[in-house]
Write a protein that binds this DNA or RNA. Structure first.
Lengths: 350, 350
DNA sequence: GTTTTGCACTCTAATTAGGAGAGTGCTAGA
DNA sequence: TCTAGCACTCTCCTAATTAGAGTGCAAAAC
């Protein structure tokens, strides 16, 4: 027996046909019929043959007919196969790469940079762009400063990395003089600068236990303040979303009900955050197609994500949200490169 | 001649009828016919009479028929009359007032409070809530601090009012020691604390001119830094919007095209900002109905705004955006009270 | 054995027609 | 000045029809 057929009956030709169909569908959103396919692909096959093949593909769960006499549409499983094995990823041309590099030059503060990244993703892909903010956990303290405000309140400034600053206001039992505050911050900077927040927290706890023996007033003041400043809830996870409205142009989602649900879940953030977290330890670009993601609101949507990192440390995840019928061959490299460029832009902050 | 008719032929009865019609339409969104009105209002009038009156009202431009055999619908001019002269504003019940007071207690920082206010407006009205952020201009500096970062970069912390902090990063020609920075900030605090930003700017300019004669190194350093810290572009105007998605439930706007345009203009912010600015010096609640506002995207929308103030100084404007067919009698007092409560919440920061 | 042709069949989308319902404007009468 | 009556108009809903696209299957061709 000659080696012509693949294990589950996926001949070279079937795959080629399948790929053409998916590309066709992604291109113009209409179910693809056998006639069209016969005309448009290079192969000299009659529509009938193509129908036979399509019937096989449908049996395998890769295609689906909306109804008897419409053409075929890829299923989630079909998109999966397409994306994993058949996709020909475009190279971005230099203009596009330059554009990204230019827009992500480390100009302003970190928060602004992340916003910019998100907008950039949405502008280039004409879909929704999302950038998950770095968790405080993974970054280290550069410096802490105290500023006395009125009424026992103290402004705590945490400089996390050069371009990221967090402000917190704490309330103290008594009023501290600014020299006391100065001493406290000197002490804390000496002790904690360069360490990451979780370890700072555990050290604070240790110090608190030792407190009774310790009569040094400065240290005591400092640790008391540190407790309030650092022990407060972690800066909650969050993300920046841009270009929601681009999704309103997408035919598949063009129904106010659906869109409202989708937008509501963008606002609640919970589901999207879960999804993004899933890919935080993925290597490179990851793709969630339709129901695969496990969130109903994302049916008919795909999410293309990539973690971004500095010095090998993953800081967060960014990505693009669009219809399952998106131009993966373009979106994937865009997400990939943007993640890398964001990483290096952030790197220059250190 | 008895004093029964108003100048442009608006009898008591016509007005009553008109008000009933508008209320009816606001309630269920359907054009109101003469039969319905005859049935539902207290007056013992036949539909035919009501038709005559409605015809008059239509001639005056207060009503409009979508087509020959639909009922009538108020025009923009009609809404205007309704809102200005006929509206019976509801008193909010205590539960609602308490709710607002509770949510707007000055817990976190100012930014968070404004966000909360915006969400609150949208939740209570089930429409979109918007809060314009205070302009930096109108507030005074409490304190300025410098923190040296790496590479000639200095973190400037402007404490504007106790709970509002702005961070800026400036680049300097040479590296300054932290004691130099300390001296500079002491000097500037002495000089500028308590003054508002525009006057600080003009003083800086004066000082710069005097510079040549002045050989005091500390002052020179300080003024150079101040120049960079304060002269940078004003914190641009901005607003916080919440509950966009509520508008997707509104039947009149339920068309993806329209909604997209509306949302896009929310994102661009320009138009909405212009509109909000218009009412910054209005006394109390102001209402823009449909085309009145002069922005096409806001056709079929009304905006109810009120400035909020502390100590008689207007800080900004907040409001609600919804369909022209909104429950003005509820929305108006909500906007009014929220503005007042926000004012007093902000007041407690001083 | 694979591919093609031919044909009956199915389903959608667009068009048309018919009626029900709501509301109007007008005129004549109370 | 108001009411009653009536013809008229317009929308909305439903049903029926048709054209078009695409399928599946069986028999013929390669």
């Amino acid at each position: 027996m000659p080696q012509t057929t693949n294990p589950p009956r996926l001949s070279e030709r079937s795959l080629y046909l399948f790929r053409s169909l998916v590309e066709h569908f992604i291109h113009d959103g209409q179910p693809v019929g056998s006639r069209t396919l016969a005309r448009d692909i290079g192969l000299e096959l009659s529509p009938a043959t193509i129908r036979n093949i399509m019937a096989d593909l449908e049996d395998m769960g890769l295609l689906h007919s909306p109804h008897t006499s419409a053409g075929r549409v890829p299923t989630v499983k079909g998109y999966r196969l397409f994306v994993d094995s058949l996709l020909r990823v475009h190279q971005l041309n230099n203009r596009e790469i330059e554009r990204i590099a230019e827009e992500l030059n480390p100009g302003h503060d970190k928060q602004a940079l992340l916003k910019r990244t998100s907008s950039l993703l949405s502008e280039i892909t004409r879909l929704a762009g999302v950038v998950m903010l770095p968790r405080t956990e993974q970054r280290s303290l550069k410096r802490v400063e105290f500023v006395a405000l009125s009424d026992n309140r103290i402004l705590v400034i945490l400089v996390i990395s050069d371009n990221e600053i967090q402000n917190r206001i704490i309330h103290t039992a008594r009023v501290y003089s600014s020299s006391e505050l100065q001493q406290a911050s000197n002490y804390l900077n000496e002790m904690f600068a360069g360490k990451d927040l979780p370890s700072i927290r555990s050290e604070i706890l240790k110090e608190l236990k030792k407190m009774k023996e310790n009569v040094n007033q400065i240290m005591q003041t400092a640790i008391e303040m540190a407790q309030q400043a650092f022990m407060s809830a972690d800066t909650r996870d969050d993300y920046v979303l841009a270009g929601q409205t681009n999704l309103m142009d997408v035919a598949e989602l063009c129904d106010v009900e659906r869109l409202k649900k989708l937008f509501d879940s963008f606002n609640q953030k919970r589901d999207i955050l879960h999804l993004l977290e899933q890919s935080i330890h993925a290597k490179g670009v990851q793709i969630f197609i339709g129901e695969e993601a496990g969130y109903d609101v994302l049916n008919n949507c795909s999410v293309v994500t990539s973690p971004y990192e500095v010095d090998g440390h993953i800081l967060g995840v960014l990505g693009v949200i669009g219809p399952t019928r998106m131009h993966y061959e373009r979106v994937i490299p865009i997400v990939d490169i943007t993640a890398k460029m964001l990483g290096s832009a952030l790197n220059s902050y250190n």
